[in-house]
Design a protein around this nucleic acid. Sequence first.
DNA 1: AACAAGAATGGAACCGGTTCCATTCTATCA
DNA 2: TGATAGAATGGAACCGGTTCCATTCTTGTT
Lengths: 336, 336
Amino acid sequence: MTPATIRDVAKRAGVGVGTVSRVLNDRPFVSDATHQKVLSAIEALDYTPSPIARRLSLRKTLTIAVIVPFFTRPSFVERLRGVEFALADSEYDLVLFNVETTDKRDAYFHDVPRRERVDGLLIISLSPRDADVERFLQAKVPTVLVDARHPRLSRAVIDDVAGGRLATQHLIELGHRKIAYVSDFLENPFNFVSSRDRHEGYRQALTAAGIPFQPAYHQQGEHGRQQAREMAHTLLALPDPPTAIFAASDTQAIGVLEAAQDAGISVPEDLSVIGYDDIEIAEYLQLTTIRQPLFASGVEGVELLLEAIANPPPTAQQVHLPTRLVARRTTGRLVD
Amino acid sequence: MTPATIRDVAKRAGVGVGTVSRVLNDRPFVSDATHQKVLSAIEALDYTPSPIARRLSLRKTLTIAVIVPFFTRPSFVERLRGVEFALADSEYDLVLFNVETTDKRDAYFHDVPRRERVDGLLIISLSPRDADVERFLQAKVPTVLVDARHPRLSRAVIDDVAGGRLATQHLIELGHRKIAYVSDFLENPFNFVSSRDRHEGYRQALTAAGIPFQPAYHQQGEHGRQQAREMAHTLLALPDPPTAIFAASDTQAIGVLEAAQDAGISVPEDLSVIGYDDIEIAEYLQLTTIRQPLFASGVEGVELLLEAIANPPPTAQQVHLPTRLVARRTTGRLVD
DNA sequence: AACAAGAATGGAACCGGTTCCATTCTATCA
DNA sequence: TGATAGAATGGAACCGGTTCCATTCTTGTT
């Protein structure tokens, strides 16, 4: 049983296909009587318009591609949820691409942003390089970034510099002067920028407090809990170990907590630990952290993108989203 | 600058559109010389075929819809990752739908499975009702379930009955006789079945060990950590409290751990706790759990679906995936 | 050289919508 | 009543691919 077509509806209603189309698309110049006839035929035939045919005719794919590295979980989940939520009532389909290798990232950055394939592109956490951006712009595929950056692209901005500053200030206000930072490599093949921005904020807060930066207090590694655990071990084994550690994400903060446990160090009495994200498990762990509006970043990214599709902006736009300190029990006043 | 079309390529190569199509689709009956001419023209024009036009012509949407409730995180993430992985090298686009309310579930179950919209449907964790299934079958949309069940649909099966039995047997082997089960409501509006199956396994293991089931030892609630925490409080406040608790998911196990902490109960010395899933944080918490192959369930679901699209099976198929006990430090031998 | 068979090719028809223009209908005004 | 203007309508052309059949070309056989 083949699905009914617009011609079937037109025939059944005794009208022309143009009239059926006008009814389907709420166009004027259809009499009430004719309108009713068409609706009856549509119902009788259980007709649904073919999205493919419609897209070809309109020359729009009605598709938004979302490229996101799943390994940034759990933060990407809430961002993606915001994206899906914002697109759910639009006419666009959300097509998903997960990146786990730089090869995959490069392939998707090359193959996905084509006008005949997608109407818009949303990239989460992966900052594109100039050549990538040149291609997106040349293809005239509206592109928006979330948790990523390029000067020529619009983006939903969570101010990670301010977030890093906030985290570090919190530790400073608790009396800490030996404050370490555990993060991803600031320079990394996926071109993540959030650890870098949080580092910038960390440095700014130190400077503002007149605390000299100690290179040994910044440990960089691959993203992950285990890697953060090892970095924390290195820090705790220093001749003059830090009294506080700011981890660039909650996942990494957990690794730091593990290292403290390994070393028999009491948190927050002997070591304060602050994370970033406020993922769900942070509450259970009573982890002090910086909360970023993950869901809202997804929603705002989509809003920017839909606007860029409808009305291409002359220059890159930015929507700013605030971070917030959530003080729990892994940070405490420095005691001698 | 409008994207080049097949007609542009044909003109530039000095051939007919049928010949270009044969080259694009690796059809025979194209001479080497002509083949080269077409490839050169394609390259010169940076031509990419329009997926929409192709889909309309082929009468295939080349789209797989995935309907999944994000609130089952973190387990859905790894399933979805398996799905994306399995579809990445196929010709299909993965279109994502998140369900957070039964209204949304119903809307998607009604609107998405249409032949003119999708070539196949993958449903994660949401068991469809008879009326839903009738509609999928009538629409002739191949549908596969992952972590869900209906007798008329194919599915990737993780044997949750066996998993529940395994968890409970582990506790029994440690000497426990007062074993409680904390789960979602067995009857729930989303029609989740995994808690019910794990409950079945729990009951089977009790019966096999000659341990009578005590209704007070089964606490049901909404899915979530806080809810599990409250249920655990109820159990621990019983006149004859359990010495072990099997939580239907790791997330709920964390809630149970919180309640034990709240009540000053030592784990595993005074209370053994076992979860289900082996989510990432389980290792940090040293949680004993049942590991299910989440990624593989996504991959297998897609394999089943692609096969069902290519060769519709006469009856519902099943692929079985095993569970495994991961004994860590939240379960221990019962001490008087 | 003529014929036959198979390879190679071109392009009209088709997929199922949207749109725009020619045509018809309707209502109003002089 | 006839003319005019605006509303309503039908359907051909179009979107950009795929396919299949009529036609042409090429090669081998007699």
